[in-house]
Amino acid sequence: MRKPFILGLLWTINIASAVTHSYQYFYTATAGIKGFPEFVAVGMVDGEQISYYDSSSKQLIPRQEWVKKAVDVEFWERNTQVFLNTQVSFEASVEIAMQRFNQIDGVHTLQKRYGCEWDSETGTTDGFELYGYDGEDFIAFDMKNMRWITPSPQGVTTKSKWDRDRILNEMRKSYLTQICIEWLKKYVGYGRSTLERKVPPEVSLLQRDPSSPVTCLATGFFPEGIVVSWQKEGEDLHEDVELGETLPNNDGTFQKTSRLRVKPEDWKKDTYTCTVQHKCLKEDIVKRVYEEEIRTNHGFVPSDSKSVYSSVLI
């Protein structure tokens, strides 16, 4: 079973899978978070945000100029109405989930990720629809066997109900294997210059103060697939390393950090290096850890992303 998204997670694309395109939507409904919309929907193509809706604005808006050319002028208003209905459904679903888990109050999150993938070289396609509750797997659609799978006892009721609805499951499969793929190919065609652009990363070594861990920051790169690793005396280092998520920048590029948790006296004595691999690079970028290479990093905090047809969990 695929692991669910969690709030702020953008899945990492393997460097070698450049021909694989994806179209997906993230829905997030929350309870108990003041100042945050109770419902957010984000549409993405190849990791690029193309549309956004939340319960505060109640308006679906485009996030890319090229996506406006791919749809008719009524598209945004028409689908705003769809998301208004989806919002009501998901807000009700959070309350039902809380009842299932015997929760009266507190902060809770129900999330859904669905969409499709297409390999433009082999023609292979795939589809997925899955839900998470409070950051854990809740239920997922097994498209091959036309059934729902849940690791959670609280999801059994939902599984039983959705398994019985064969017509709706056939509609899901039709959407994921046909309609979604058609839209994905259309979006890739219109957004090719943006989606297939290649921007190499800029790499820096950062440190808050002389006694803090050293951070290797790769930023400004596209596409998002990247490998950031540490070596000690030329050998790959896995201990004392904290790898961050790949996060979006405001300009549509990405950033990734990895922290080396060793004392300064260690990296002053032995040779430590940070190596960055990205498809845009002819050669790997290698940064050796020594004082002249490290930028003082007072106040540095990597940017975070709180990005993100529906069913009520009855």
Rank of each mutant, 00 (worst) to 15 (best):
P4F: 01
F5I: 14
G8A: 08
T20E: 11
H21R: 07
S22N: 08
Q24M: 10
A31V: 10
G32C: 06
I33N: 06
G35C: 03
P37C: 07
E38L: 10
M44S: 13
Q49T: 09
D54E: 02
W66S: 08
A70S: 14
A70N: 03
E74A: 12
F75V: 07
T80V: 06
T80Q: 03
L84I: 15
L84K: 13
S89H: 01
V94K: 07
E95I: 15
A97S: 10
Q99G: 13
Q103M: 15
Q103P: 00
I104Q: 14
L110E: 03
W118T: 05
T124W: 00
G127R: 02
E129D: 13
L130T: 07
Y133R: 03
F138V: 01
I139R: 02
A140S: 12
A140G: 09
M146Q: 13
R147S: 10
I149V: 15
P153K: 04
Q154F: 09
V156E: 09
K159S: 08
K161P: 00
D165C: 06
L168V: 07
L168Q: 10
E170V: 07
M171H: 08
K173I: 04
S174C: 04
T177M: 15
C180S: 03
L184E: 07
Y187E: 08
Y187T: 05
Y187F: 14
G191M: 02
E196D: 12
E202L: 11
V203T: 09
P210E: 04
P213F: 04
L217T: 06
G220R: 03
P223I: 06
I226L: 08
V227D: 15
V227Q: 13
G234M: 06
V241T: 12
P248H: 02
N249H: 04
N249C: 09
N249W: 00
D251L: 06
F254K: 03
F254I: 02
K256Y: 01
K256I: 10
K256T: 08
L260C: 06
V262D: 00
D266F: 04
D270G: 00
Y272D: 01
T273E: 08
T273H: 00
V276N: 03
C280T: 08
R288T: 15
F300V: 10
L313Q: 09
I314K: 09
